[in-house]
Design a protein around this nucleic acid. Structure first.
Length: 280
DNA sequence: GTGATATGAGAAT
DNA sequence: TTCTCCTATCACT
């Protein structure tokens, strides 16, 4: 949004949120001098380093946000589960809560709260970060073949592989669950048992779904025939964003087969899937 | 006021 | 596999 009201991004920080934020920071601060401060104090030294510099470019790879300043240093932010960014019009009000970093100029301000990572990188460190991340469905330079080389020979389940940021970057718990549902793939299937065609379809789906997420600012994964309007069902009411097939729908009927959506813990993360539909 | 909870990820065991 | 860190929110006492 480009508005006059503060707004929050990152209720679901998967890759789409980060790419959206990169664009938002560029729109607000790109090409100009930025004021930086750390009201909370935990990034005071870093903020001093940024303060008064020009934001030259922004970048995003998976869930990592990178803001490039005119001293050749990059602010590296990872939101983790809790991190959030809030933008608003100048003048910035007194900060509320734990604001790790506030950037501002004459028009806007942006508050960063609760990031997992907030640090400055030199170009070599930024390069190393890219090197340890897999292809990102939202990046033009992404090569899904690199991911397939890992997946196609792995005994690890595709449900776990999709969450491994060194295999595919930017996919989180929601896109993982939804892409596998949409392609009818059992999350427990070992990567090497997938066909290349299945991987191609999953990748294409991630590219489309996540690009949509960047545009809309939330995760909607249901096809037109499964929207609340099309099915005459009530819309999703919780605060987890858009319309989805299985994510956090445990015990509820599958929109396709009517069976119960299941949940379980896989590699320490909640997994949601429909046993009736995900058999491939 | 307290506790549970969440989308992540790295380190420790 | 379990711990630990980051923070806000909401349902409970």
């Amino acid at each position: 949004m480009v508005g006059n009201r503060p707004y929050h991004l990152g209720t679901m920080p998967e890759g789409h949120t980060i790419h959206h934020l990169a664009g938002r920071y560029r729109q607000a601060f790109g090409g100009g001098v930025v004021r930086a401060e750390s009201p909370q104090g935990r990034f005071a030294a870093g903020a001093r380093q940024i303060d008064g510099r020009v934001l030259q470019e922004t970048d995003a790879h998976g869930k990592h946000l990178l803001l490039g300043f005119d001293d050749d240093r990059w602010l590296h932010v990872h939101l983790g589960i809790y991190g959030k960014c809030a933008f608003g019009p100048a003048p910035a009000p007194a900060p509320t809560g734990a604001v790790r970093l506030r950037l501002s100029n004459a028009e806007e301000y942006a508050d960063l709260r609760g990031p997992n990572t907030c640090e400055l990188l030199d170009p070599a460190e930024k390069k190393a970060l890219h090197a340890r991340l897999g292809p990102d469905p939202l990046r033009a330079d992404a090569d899904p073949e690199l991911a397939w080389r890992r997946i196609g020979r792995s005994r690890t389940s595709i449900g776990v592989l999709l969450m491994d940021q060194s295999v595919v970057a930017g996919v989180g718990n929601i896109y993982r669950a939804e892409a596998l549902f949409r392609e009818g793939v059992d999350p427990a299937r070992p990567g090497r048992d997938l066909t290349r065609g299945q991987w191609t379809a999953i990748w294409a789906d991630l590219v489309a779904l996540m690009a949509d997420g960047v545009r809309v600012g939330r995760i909607d994964t249901v096809r037109p025939e499964h929207t609340p309007e099309a099915m005459g069902r009530p819309p999703r009411v919780d605060d987890h964003g858009g319309e989805v097939y299985v994510y956090r729908r445990a015990g509820m009927p599958c929109f396709l087969c009517g069976g119960e959506v299941r949940t379980g813990v896989l590699a320490g993360r909640n997994l949601f899937w429909c046993p009736g539909c995900q058999t491939a």
